[in-house]
Each structure stands twice: as structure tokens, then as C-alpha cells.
């Protein structure tokens, strides 16, 4: 039985459709990612799954329990980390953890094994007030608090937003380990690079699911030929590329531009000469593998 089943779920706030007929399921011990821009409906979906709001239409179950009828039982089974830092800033690290442990009817000692990897990193600061922690440490504490009652399903709403790159990587390492412990994890993120770390990802925009697949499958569906183009002046490069005949899309991607062509057999030389003619220097053109971000951008254009 899947851990989460969502069937034709819809929710609107006054005139805004936050969720529009969404269906998917998440298997046991799966790391399931939701990728989408701000305001795409991720938080609304998560609040329905955590029984905090009621859907207008459709049903959702967590561990076979209905989110509307059996909300009390579900609340014991899930660990939730809201998008905003929601711990008590005036309590210390230790006090926050102890508080959530008692509220869920357990103790820190009882489930210490589960959180040891994460908590051990912030334990040296356990007397510090939670409000005075750095962004990465706050997230680790919030995760520890969400995990302290050994939930079978973990729901994380943008846990790495505002966290530095190294801490983000560490955080995802931890999620992998938790998943290996048999915990189902649903995580939302605005970072495309994190999507490839999930077992499956769902691309969501304007309350609609645009694709659900494994990251490699999503990439395979990319239809166009893609090139990575570099030049010294990246800003004019982007503009010049857009006016090159036959170009489908141009996106900045780190230090390079990703250019897609609907035509399969694109001649690199032609492009190179065109850019030289525009006065660019240090031109490097190479065929590129599509990544999740390219796929997402493509899906966004389609709709």
C-alpha cells in the first residue's frame, strides 16, 4: 500500500486556484520531491496532507487514513517541517527538542538513534537560543524536532531555502539516510539541482502537476538538442543567442547559456561564426545533457 495517495485534489482561496485536480501517490520509504516556483501550490498541498486545511474536492490519504476524517490519527504519524522557521526562538536548542518530544509523548533519549546524525551536529550549541542559530543549524534543529516522535511520513516544506550550499548537501545526505530507515519523505524545493536527488519528482506549477517521474525519466523526455555556450560577455551573449535563427530557448545556467534547437542536426560552426561576427570572444560551444531545470523550463513554456 502506498504511503500517500492523493486523488483529484482541488483547493482554492477566494478566486485563486491553489490546487487544481491533483492526483499522485507516494510509495513507502520513497523520497518524493515537489519542484515548482513560489506560489505554485506546494505549501497548500502539504497543509492538506498534514491535516491543517481541508480540500475543496478530492481525497487524500496518509498511511490509508483520510486527511479530513482521521486527522487526529494522522497527526501522530507524520513529522512536519513548515516552510517558515517555526520553533520557539526564546527556547534553547535542547528545550525545543525536549518540548516537541514531550508533546508527542516520547523522550529525546528514546528516539535519539534516529536523530543522532543530525542532532550531533548542533548538540555543541544545545544551550544556545534557537533564535540565535544560523540558517543551516535552524533547519537541522527543525528536522530533529520533526523526527523526534519517529514519524513514518516526513513532510518537509522547502527545508533548504535560505541555507548555504554545503549545508544543503548535508541535509540531503540526511534525508537519504532517513529514507533508508524506512521513512517516507515528501519534500518541496525551489532548487532544481535538489530534484535529481529524489527518487521521483513532481513538477508543479499554478496548482497543476505537469510531470511525475524519476529524475532520469524526466530528463529523457527532453525533446530538443541542447548546447552549452560560453563567452566572456555573458549578458550580451544571451541577447545575441536569442536572435540567432532556429533558436528555441536560451537560459542562463551558471556561467554558461543553455541554448536549445528544435532542429536535430544543428551546426555548431554556424553558431560560432555568428557569435564571432557579433564581436564575442572566448566562445566555447559544446553539446549539453538536459538537466531537470531545462526540462522544467520546457514544461513551463508548453503550458
Amino acid at each position: 500500500m502506498p504511503a500517500i495517495v492523493v486523488d483529484h485534489l482541488a483547493k482554492h482561496f477566494s478566486t485563486v486556484k491553489a490546487l487544481d485536480d491533483i492526483s499522485f501517490s507516494v510509495g513507502k520509504a520513497e523520497l518524493f520531491g515537489f519542484i515548482g516556483p513560489d506560489g505554485s501550490g506546494k505549501t497548500t498541498l502539504f497543509r492538506i496532507l498534514t491535516t491543517l486545511i481541508v480540500p475543496d474536492m478530492g481525497t487524500a490519504t496518509v498511511n490509508g487514513l483520510d486527511v479530513v476524517k482521521d486527522y487526529r490519527k494522522i497527526r501522530k504519524d507524520i513529522g512536519y517541517m513548515p516552510g517558515r522557521f517555526s520553533l520557539y526562538a526564546d527556547l534553547s536548542v535542547e528545550e525545543n527538542l525536549n518540548f516537541y518530544a514531550t508533546v508527542f509523548g516520547t523522550t529525546v533519549a528514546e528516539n535519539y538513534e534516529l536523530i543522532r546524525d543530525i542532532y550531533s551536529q548542533i548538540e555543541p550549541f544545545k544551550k544556545r537560543k534557537a533564535g540565535k542559530l544560523s540558517g543551516g543549524m535552524k533547519q537541522k534543529l527543525a528536522l530533529s524536532c520533526a523526527l523526534i516522535h519517529k514519524p513514518s511520513v516526513l513532510i518537509l516544506d522547502e527545508p533548504t531555502t535560505g541555507v548555504d550550499a554545503v549545508s544543503r548537501l548535508e541535509f540531503w545526505e540526511m534525508l537519504k539516510r532517513l529514507k533508508n530507515n524506512g521513512i517516507t519523505i515528501v519534500v518541496a524545493t525551489p532548487y532544481m539541482d535538489e530534484a535529481s536527488l529524489c527518487d521521483r519528482v513532481a513538477l508543479i506549477q499554478d496548482g497543476k502537476l505537469m510531470a511525475i517521474s524519476t529524475p532520469s525519466e524526466v530528463i529523457k523526455t527532453y525533446p530538443w538538442s541542447l548546447f552549452s555556450v560560453k563567452a566572456d560577455d555573458i549578458f550580451t551573449l544571451l541577447n545575441d543567442l536569442k536572435s540567432f535563427p532556429g533558436v528555441h530557448t536560451v537560459f542562463a545556467f551558471g556561467q554558461a547559456a543553455h541554448v536549445s534547437f528544435k532542429e536535430r542536426n544543428m551546426d555548431e560552426k554556424l553558431l560560432s561564426e555568428y557569435l564571432l561576427g557579433k564581436g564575442h570572444s572566448g566562445i566555447k560551444i559544446s553539446p549539453a545533457e538536459a538537466n531537470i531545470e531545462d526540462c522544467f523550463m520546457e514544461l513551463m513554456i508548453k503550458t
Binding site: R75, P82, F85, S86, L87, Y100, V103
Partner: peptide, 12 residues
């Protein structure tokens, strides 16, 4: 502060 969100999700 948003902590009510977590309290509501708890079995309290």
C-alpha cells in the same frame, strides 16, 4: 510565529 501550525499537527 507559525508555531501554532506545529502545535496543531501535534497530537495535543
Amino acid at each position: 510565529l507559525g508555531t501554532m501550525e506545529l502545535l496543531l499537527v501535534s497530537p495535543l
